[in-house]
Write a protein that binds this DNA or RNA. Structure first.
Lengths: 369, 369
DNA sequence: ATGAAAGCGCTAACAG
DNA sequence: CTGTTAGCGCTTTCAT
């Protein structure tokens, strides 16, 4: 059933070595013989056995790709780009979702080692160090974002959160917002911490103090975003909110809709990541872009560099990924500065009546200045 | 560097055969020896080489998973579920996105054959038949949705589109809608055709004729959904629209927002698929659910059945996946029946002025009855 | 119950 | 330029 190289050799009346050479397009093989080989190969529909090749060559031509959750819209774009590059270079990708589960991370690493991957891109934001050690011990080329150690064999993609977040804060300030809230991600993630700190820095740069209650802890999910809305409005009703990722912003907008809070007129919202869906939200979400395709491209290139260059620690292994604001329609002048005479009627179910934003509107009060 | 089974054998002072048996938990091996082996394995951090195992066993323990586009939100959920099952059963998954490109489909199939996958789930809706032949020729177990041939070795998941779509149509009819439009997917896809036909059938069942202009051709993308809005409003302004998938519905809602058309009061929208995001749309999208997790589970189980059962064509190979409506908030009573005295002001930018829906509102006309 | 040895399908010396 | 042959790391008879 399964053709092998010997069968081809027999039918083409050459040795297996010649078949191997022909298939691998070694130039020294006689064109006549090569043609004969290819003819048989095509006729029989022969495909070389990658397992056998990998065994003898010591190269699996598989890259591991670790993501947090493929169901998080941030990742599919990355996976797609990474795969495009992989097929181009004749690599396979072994994809694993850690789903934030230590057991899964462990099995993830084990599977990659067992399949003898040629490199691993860890694009999850946070991973058990002990597992990384297993990979490092085997000298598997690694690429991280944000959190990698500075040692040979591992590349690092450093994300410049500050630029994009500064732009977002200044955009909001220009719109006369002074009370700006921030919804963080899970605080055990370096990337979440970095975003929060970038926010604080950007605020301080323009002389806006940030009180502790302006910063509420989220979890980078849509549900977390929904909960966050109530948290930020408990105190002093900020007129704008910056979210640590788009999912949070989307959940928050959805909750605002339920409570009859109009985005952007009652509350301006800015996200982070720029997932593709953001453009299709209602209203389209203004957000800080961290290009997923670029990230994937850098990660892949970093891996290829490590694999190609036989000499260890030859090329540079630090890469930077910039961020920048993309303006859409979820932000507006702060209430009281928007040139409107009175609050508009809003569409939406308006189930919730507890919101301070809503309360103000019901009483016919003028928007917070 | 790379430990092998011989090294383990040497250190544990047993033969390689015993190491192999111990690792594979063959019960006949002496517990004493087994313990010795495991001790060395743990100390050295030995991981068996899957390539070698696959080569000798003839089983790669890899399942191919073909999807249309991982960036289409319909698929990540499927991939995640499929992967969960795979790790549970010690399988790897070789994921390929065809991105509607024949070249990619071809390379996809080639890669799978070269890696000697133990089975392939083709969850894309439409695939070149000739490629399927390559797989069938090698007797690779296959599972399709909707389109598979009825032959041994291939399982089929038949989706019952009718049930869910009937529910959607009747829901709309109950809301007094009589002019209901349908936005199709790409008409070369069987699944898109099936949905459209289910719509026609459901309409006819309740005595609502469907004119050709009520059916507009989309492409299952958000951009297509945006374009579709203008197409459906050209003629007689339907009061409700059913979309062939959620992406289309999302794009359409976004365009409606731009044009100042209020969903659901001016226009009711129903989607199809129930991707996770639908619940977070504004308004939350009423849609026909086709469970992605269930689909993935069935697909995986089908593959396992084919692989496990040595005897060919033993179990059943037809599976059914049902669909049903999930009610959210993108549908309302048809205009004129909604108990409102006049059209509400809508939130939104209202850039577009060309929409008939909008024109009516501007003129202060009462909504279409 | 354990070990010796023969491959799995392929590539890469090494000879010719 | 082509063929012979020795493995790659593992499993699995077949003896013992």
């Amino acid at each position: 059933m399964d053709m092998d190289i010997r069968e081809i050799a027999r039918r083409a009346k050459v040795s297996t070595a010649t078949v191997s050479r022909a298939i691998n397009r070694i130039p020294t093989v006689d064109p006549q013989l090569a043609k004969r080989v290819w003819k048989v190969v095509d006729e029989l529909g022969y495909y070389p056995n990658t397992q056998a090749r990998a065994l003898v060559s010591g190269k699996s031509r598989i890259f591991g790709l670790v993501v947090s959750e493929i169901t998080n819209p941030f990742f599919p774009e990355i996976v797609q780009t990474f795969e495009n590059l992989a097929v181009q270079h004749n690599y396979e990708i072994l994809l694993t979702s850690t789903i934030h589960d230590p057991k899964r991370m462990e099995s993830s690493v084990r599977r990659m080692i067992e399949r003898r991957v040629d490199g691993v891109a860890i694009l999850t934001f946070g991973m058990e160090d002990s597992l990384i050690e297993h990979l490092r011990f085997r000298k598997v080329p690694l690429v991280f974002v944000d959190v990698g150690p500075d040692v040979p064999g591992v590349s690092n993609i450093r994300v410049n959160y500050q630029n994009g977040i500064r732009q977002a804060v200044q955009h909001l300030a220009a719109l006369r917002h002074t009370r700006i809230a921030f919804v963080t991600g899970p605080l055990h993630l370096k990337s979440a911490l970095a975003r929060r700190d970038a926010f604080k820095t950007a605020m301080e740069e323009i002389g806006l103090p940030v009180a502790p209650e302006q910063i509420v802890v989220g979890d980078h999910t849509m549900e977390g975003g929904m909960r966050a809305l109530d948290l930020i409005s408990v105190r002093d009703c900020p007129t704008a909110v910056l979210c640590s990722n788009d999912m949070t912003a989307i959940g928050l907008m959805r909750e605002a809709y339920d409570q009859g809070i109009n985005i952007p007129h009652d509350l301006s919202v800015v996200g982070f990541d720029d997932i593709r869906l953001s453009e299709f939200m209602i209203p389209p979400l203004t957000t800080v872009q961290m290009s997923q395709t670029e990230l994937a491209q850098i990660a892949f290139k970093a891996l290829m560099n490590e694999v190609d260059g036989e000499s260890p620690a030859q090329g540079k292994s630090e890469y930077e990924l910039n961020t920048h604001l993309v303006l859409r329609r979820s932000t507006a002048l702060a209430p009281g500065h928007d040139g409107r005479l009175k609050p508009l009627m809003v569409s939406g179910a308006g189930r919730g009546l507890s919101s301070p934003y809503r309360a103000r509107r019901r009483k016919g009060m003028k928007p917070l200045a």
